[in-house]
Each structure stands twice: as C-alpha cells, then as structure tokens.
Computed example of a mutant assay.
Amino acid sequence: MQDILGQAIADYQAGQRRTRLWILPSYGPREQMPVRVYFRSPSEMSELEHIALGACTGHILDAGAGAGSHALYLQQQGRKVTALDISPLNCAAMKERGVTDVRKGDLLKWKGRRFDTVLLLMNGIGITGSIQGLKDFLATAPNLLKPGGQLLFDSSDIAYLYEKNPVAGRRYYGEVDYQYSYRGQVSGLFSWLYIDSKRLRKIARATGWHCDELYREDSGQYLMRLTR
C-alpha cells in the first residue's frame, strides 16, 4: 500500500471508519490522525480557515486538497476553484464528493495555468520539506500566479516540542520527518516543514515577497499572505 493517506481517505469515504491512521514523527511517539478531519464541514472549520477562505480571490488553486473540504466550501460560495492533489485516491474521493475541477498533480512541479490565489491550508506549505525547499519554492512560485496574485498558507512555530529534548546538529527544528501507518502498512519517510513567522519573513523578503500576517491563534499557528 503506497498511498496510505489516500487509502485512509478512500476507506472513510466508503464508510469504513474503524481502522486508525497513525503518524510516526521524528520528534516523538506516534500520534493518531483522525481521518474525519479531512471531511469536516464549514461549521467544524477553525476561525483561521474561515479567514483564509474569505481572503481568497479570483481563480483559486486549493493545493494539497485532500478530501476537498475547502474546495467544496469555496465552490458552494460560487467561487472558481481548482483542487490539486498528488494522490489519485484523494482525487477520486473529491470527485465523488462533488468537487467539479479536480487535477492530479504535484504543486512543486506544476506547469499549467496560473491562478489568482494559491491556497495551502493545514500547513500545506510543509510540502516544501525544508528551509532550502521553501526557498526554492518561493523562487519559482511567481510562475503559479497571475499578476497581483497571492499565496495563502498557515504554519506554526514548533519549538515547544523540543523544550525537554533540544535539537542537536545544524538542522532547523521545524524540519520534521514523518511516516504514515494504516492497516498494518507503513509509508516511506517523507519530510515536512513547520516554519516560524520570523524566519519565514526573512526568507520571503530575500526572494522578493511581501508578507501580511492575517491571523494568529493563541497556540502560535498563524495565517500568512504572500504577494510580490
């Protein structure tokens, strides 16, 4: 089973909801990931999410769309939205749920049309995997956007995870390795990035972006808009 998250989403969509999805992080013990999160209704979404969805303009690319909950909400609001996900199982689930424009693909390799808004919620910017990956993405991301376009994403400072176990070595503490575990199968290792806002602003400025923090939760999770 290669597409473990996609299989969990497909099973949930099909009514199979007893099996647990786990994430195995490099910073500590395994954690359960409720698959229900990917299917939540607008009333179950956070204030941060609603602010992000309200800030979307024009033709929106919902990148890493998962089961399509954000794309569905935008679509129901009469917005023009394209849902992008690398998982064929996720794409199938979105189509079954009623998302009308679904594309299978990798945001980091996107060569198609440009958008007014690229939306990366649920820490979607983490797909860049590392500080260098983020720099590389921001250097090429203007190719995703129409003139005046915007990137919208959330992230957080996870330094608190290491208060008892300081990070050793030169690696940035927000660069995390994960695996998924589901139905007795374990995925390959993949990297994910959590970026503190101060470091993000510095990297963004160096690559020609302007940052506007639209919202910050008490937990430290924040919503950022990047424009050229």
Rank of each mutant, 00 (worst) to 15 (best):
T128F: 03
G105A: 11
G78F: 02
Q76V: 00
G54M: 11
K95A: 13
V99L: 11
Q132D: 15
A71I: 02
P147Q: 14
L119R: 06
L119W: 04
A65W: 04
R79F: 01
E49I: 10
K135H: 09
E49F: 02
I60V: 15
A141W: 14
L74H: 05
T128M: 07
V81Y: 06
T57P: 01
K109Q: 15
P142V: 10
G148S: 07
G54R: 15
T57I: 13
G126D: 05
G112I: 08
N123P: 01
E49V: 09
N143Y: 14
A67G: 01
Y73C: 13
L138V: 12
L53N: 02
A139Y: 10
R97N: 00
V99Y: 02
L107G: 11
F115G: 05
A52H: 04
S69N: 15
G68L: 02
L84R: 06
T117C: 04
K95W: 06
T117L: 06
G66K: 08
D116A: 06
I125W: 02
Q132T: 14
A65Q: 03
D85E: 06
A93W: 05
T128D: 05
L138S: 08
W110R: 00
G148T: 03
G133W: 00
N123Y: 05
R103E: 08
L144E: 12
L134G: 13
T57S: 15
G105T: 08
Y73F: 13
L145A: 04
K111G: 09
T117A: 02
I125N: 01
L138A: 08
L107F: 07
Q132L: 12
L119S: 05
V118W: 03
K80C: 07
A139R: 15
I86M: 12
Y73N: 13
A63I: 11
L61Q: 04
I86P: 03
G54K: 14
L108H: 01
H59F: 11
L89D: 08
L134H: 07
M122H: 08
T128I: 03
Q75I: 00
S69G: 03
H50Q: 14
D106E: 09
G129W: 05
H70R: 02
D136F: 02
V99M: 12
G78P: 06
I51P: 10
L120F: 01
A139M: 11
I125Y: 02
A67N: 08
Q75P: 10
L134V: 08
I51R: 15
H59R: 15
C56Q: 08
T128G: 09
H59L: 15
D62S: 08
D62C: 10
H70W: 06
V118P: 00
T128P: 01
L61M: 12
R113A: 13
P147F: 12
A55R: 15
A71M: 06
M94V: 01
G68M: 04
H59P: 00
